[in-house]
Design a protein around this nucleic acid. Structure first.
Length: 154
DNA sequence: AACGGAAAAA
DNA sequence: TTTTTCCGTT
């Protein structure tokens, strides 16, 4: 019953340390994955495709984001501008024609935040399972250890 | 609604 | 460098 609760667990290296130049605190995509992983409910949920998500309540999502960042005047207009900056970085793209629908580029997300990860196609993230937002995949890290990136379940 | 320039803020 | 703010355009 209800929306499936998915725990999205990215490894520590996906979260740039606070002392890293350019990332002071939680980034928007972290926050989105948190809510999606939590199966938070009304504000945002996974879409039909792998990595796709739908913002069901834009202003509520903006309010939550604003609370997290201490920005009481956050709204969807401004949040969505931040999302559009992700287009160039190829972290996200818009699902055209679907209202409030965007799609994560998980593989890009991984490469961007894993500087020592070799860009060999052979070592592209291995999708292990995906079913309606309940997804898991893994990569081999620099030591050849299997590194889970994303796990379903609750 | 969605886009993207410009500039400020952090 | 990322996000916020503002806003003209499509």
């Amino acid at each position: 019953m209800g929306s499936p609760a998915v725990t999205v667990l990215f490894p520590n290296w996906a979260y740039k340390p606070a002392w890293s130049p350019g990332s002071r605190q939680v980034q928007l995509w972290h926050f989105l994955l948190e809510l999606l992983g939590r199966g938070e409910g009304g504000a945002i949920g996974w879409g039909r495709e792998w990595g796709e998500f739908v913002i069901r309540d834009p202003e509520r999502l903006a309010r939550l984001w604003g609370e997290r960042k201490g920005k009481p005047h956050m709204n969807y207009d401004k949040l969505s501008r931040a999302l559009r900056y992700y287009y160039n970085k190829r972290i996200l793209h818009k699902t055209k024609g679907k209202r409030f629908t965007y799609k994560f580029n998980f593989s890009k997300l991984i490469l961007v935040n894993y500087p020592w990860y070799p860009s060999s196609p052979l070592q592209a993230p291995e999708v292990r399972a995906c079913h309606q937002g309940l997804c898991s995949f893994s990569v081999m890290d620099h030591l050849g250890q299997r590194c889970p990136l994303n796990q379903g379940q609750r």
